[in-house]
Structure formats: structure tokens, C-alpha cells
Design a protein around this nucleic acid. Structure first.
Lengths: 82, 82, 82, 82
DNA sequence: TCGCCTGATAGTTGCC
DNA sequence: GGCAACTATCAGGCGA
């Protein structure tokens, strides 16, 4: 590899690493914002654990949710739960 | 602190650290065993994700499970899910 | 709980859930951007596994620096400096 | 699925769940033992936070050693040594 | 392409 | 009751 291409590669690598690190910083900031919203919710008397569960469920579409529930029921029945 | 008590302390600390590390090793081995059981379950055609959910649910007693479910229903209704 | 406060609570819950979901969407988009940068890097011939490792090391260095600083602060407080 | 295979499956599922639960119990007990050792250490005047850090460092060193070895293996393979 | 395996993220628990 | 450590779950990348 020539010195020239090496210099190019080095500079390209630096640029890529910079971009990733900048994006990771943004991601961390948004994560902190989410934490803040949950704190606020708690201050208003909501149960954040349940909120998290609800939000998780909403990410799944209806058929997916139904399918998972059916399988869960099947296994729980098999084990005599309920 | 005298040299003597220092020596005692050093030896006691080493013993404590050893005990912790030994226990941690055991814990890791059991975790591996659990992984193995899940692999086996998978090989027998079971859905391990559902198995994990079931096992998690079984750790809770009935009243706890009922309480959580009630709260979840409340929140889901409030958000118009279902 | 009265119907009125119930209505308030429902509306407040919806608003909070919306905010969390919006932020989570943003977070996911940024995560995808990061994935894109790595794909680009790969296309330019870089080894992304090594890149990730480098970035992780840089982050680790940061947190270690922070940790050391915290320890320093602890000692300074203990000695009544500041 | 026939009743018979269903019965087999149910029994197999029960056996697997039992095994996992037994192992998890063992794991939890060991975790409690570790907690106990730390309490004991504290009773002897040791700073457990620092102890944890020391043990973590030792573990990290181990995994780093393993990682370095893996990297060495990789290079040796690449160069056709072995 | 599949399954494995590591790394990222979410959740739980215990301490202060 | 908040924070920090630890655990468990999930997803993406890698090699066979």
C-alpha cells in the first residue's frame, strides 16, 4: 500500500469513527430524555413498570401479540398453571 | 496499624477474595448448565422464549401475578388497546 | 377515583406514552444510522469488528477517566479539601 | 398432534422446566452466598466496593488475556502456523 | 443460509 | 427513594 492510499485510509477511518461517536452521543442523550419522561410519569403517580410493559406490547402488531399469547397459554396449560 | 495486623488483614482479604471467586466460578458453571437445558429443549422442538416467560411467571405468586395483570389491563384500556 | 380525575389521568398517560414512543423512534433511527455508517465502512474495506473494538476502547477510557475522577473526589471530600 | 404425543410433549416440557428451575435455585443460592461473603468482609472492616472492583479487574484481566490469545490464534491461523 | 456467539439494551435487585 | 451493580433478554454479525 502506498503512503498516499494509507493517508487516505487513515483520514477516511477517522471520519467514520467520528461519525459513529457523534451518533452514539446523540443516542445517549435521547436515552436520557426517555429516563426523564419516566421520572415525570412517576411524579404524576403512574406505575412506570407497567408503562414500560404497555409500550413494549404496543410495538408488536396484533397478530404477533395473539400468537405469542396463544403459545404462552398452551405452555401454561401444559404445566397446570391456572 | 501494626505490621502484624496488616499481615492478618492481607491474609483475611485474600481468603475472602478467593471465596468470592470460587463461588463466582460455580455460578458461571450452573448458568452454563441452564443454557444446555434450553438447547436440549430447543432440540426437542420447544419454544425457549415462551419457556423463559413461563418460568418467570411461575416465580411470582398468584396474588402478585393477578395484581400486575389488573394494572396492565387498566393501562391498556386507558390507551384504547383491545 | 372520580370520572373526571380518571379522564385527566387517561389523557396524561396518553401524552406520556406518546412522548416515550416518539423518543424511542428517534433512538431507533439513530441506531440505524450507526449501522449504516458501519456498512459504509465495510464497503470501503475497513474491518468493522476492529472498528467497534476501537470505539469501545475509547468509550471505556472515558468512563475509566470518570471513575478515577470520582475516586479522587471521594478522597478529597474525605480530607475536607473543597 | 395426537393425544399421545401431546402427553409426551407435556411430560417432556415439565421435566425441562423442572430442571431449569432447580438449576436457577442453585444459582440463586450461590449468589446469596456471595452476598454473605461480602457482608462478612464488611464486618471485618473491608471496603466491599473496592473489593468488588478488585475482583472485577481480575476477571477483566482474565478475559482480556483470553481475548489476546484469541487474536494471536487468529493471526497464527492466518499465517498458516499450526 | 442457519445456528452460534458476542455485544447492546432492558429490567431487577440491593445498597446507601 | 434514588442510584449503581448485576442479570437476563434480544439482535446483529460471523463462520460453517
Amino acid at each position: 500500500m502506498t503512503e498516499r492510499s494509507n493517508a487516505f485510509a487513515t483520514s477516511a477511518l477517522k471520519a467514520l469513527v467520528d461519525r459513529v461517536e457523534r451518533l452514539e452521543t446523540q443516542k445517549r442523550e435521547i436515552a436520557e430524555d426517555i429516563t426523564e419522561v419516566y421520572k415525570e410519569a412517576k411524579g404524576q403517580g403512574f406505575d412506570t413498570k407497567t408503562m414500560r410493559r404497555v409500550i413494549r406490547e404496543r410495538r408488536k402488531d396484533d397478530s404477533e401479540r395473539a400468537e405469542e399469547q396463544a403459545l404462552l397459554d398452551l405452555y401454561m396449560d401444559a404445566l397446570g398453571m391456572r
